[in-house]
């Protein structure tokens, strides 16, 4: 049974002062699936995502990866386990280049004494890897992989952030509202990228407000309400308006 699940969480709580952001959340993610997480504003879904990506440490509860309990004291710990996150504000450094952003925090050094003694970065190797990753994601040609990220459009920046996650995420990629700031065409491309990444066997957690996007790519839908999981929907069995109804409380969920 458990081998079905790549990542699980049980009874996670987090309070900020008197505000309860997570009230015993359960969560599970299957291998190679796209799991959408939906919920109204303030339902606590971003707190859940932060807990899963190591950005916050929950007050109590248990998180497992591959059946083994894990601790995520910081984002570096999560990344070391192959869990990558694309934050809504992308977490890019605007004045640094595409390559530098993709490799930020895990730069490659030159081989030999240049790297080990003089700590010299291997620009060529990083440029090559960054170019390859962007090409594989269908982000087409890069005229200048060293151009500052601030000279790119919103969609291109999203592409860089996703490429960074895809380049290093070996088990789970978390995408927080990846289409929120994009136009129709750009959104379509992001959805395509999500499918491509899933086809590589990587599990994806997708946080989104856009029901059409959720229903297009999700294998299952985790509905978050009032600081906990209300239910998990199968997009084949329900309609987007059902999902919205559950999420807003217009329709209550009875366990079958």
């Amino acid at each position: 049974m458990t081998s079905d699940f790549l990542m699980t969480a049980e009874g996670i709580t987090k309070t900020y002062g008197r505000v309860v952001a997570m009230d015993g959340v359960d969560f599970d993610l299957r291998r190679g699936e796209v799991l959408a997480v939906i919920g109204d504003n303030g339902a606590g879904k971003s707190t859940l995502i932060k807990a899963l990506s190591g950005a916050i440490v929950p007050d109590s509860g248990r998180i497992t990866l591959d059946g083994k309990p894990i601790r995520l004291p910081n984002t570096q710990a999560a990344r070391a386990l192959g869990i990558e996150t694309v934050y809504q504000d992308l977490a890019l450094s605007p004045s640094l280049s595409i390559t530098e952003n993709i490799f930020m925090g895990r730069e490659l050094r030159r081989r030999g004494p240049l790297g080990s003694v003089l700590r010299m970065l291997d620009q060529e190797r990083m440029d090559e890897a960054a170019r390859r990753e962007l090409r594989e994601l269908g982000l087409l040609t890069i005229q200048d992989i060293r151009q500052p990220v601030e000279t790119l459009s919103g969609g291109q920046r999203q592409g860089v952030a996703v490429a960074r996650a895809a380049a290093f995420g070996s088990s789970v990629i978390i995408l927080d509202e990846p289409t929120a700031a994009l136009g129709v065409k750009e959104s379509r491309q992001v959805l395509q990228i999500i499918k491509d990444i899933r086809d590589r066997g990587i599990s994806i957690i997708l946080i989104s407000h856009s029901m059409p996007h959720v229903f297009e790519v999700a294998d299952r839908i985790h509905v978050h309400r009032l600081g906990r999981r209300l239910c998990v929907l199968d997009p084949g069995d329900c309609t987007p308006s059902d999902a919205v109804a559950y999420m807003t409380g217009a329709k209550s969920w009875e366990n079958t």
Binding site: A55, A91, P94, L96, M104, G105
Partner: peptide
């Protein structure tokens, strides 16, 4: 310009939160 530390100096100055989330201490 040529070491990871240097690039992190720029990243921290650019946007400390983004740098932290990207894995820079």
């Amino acid at each position: 310009t040529c070491t990871a530390w240097g690039r992190h100096v720029y990243a921290v100055g650019d946007d400390p939160k983004a740098a932290e989330l990207a894995g820079v201490r």
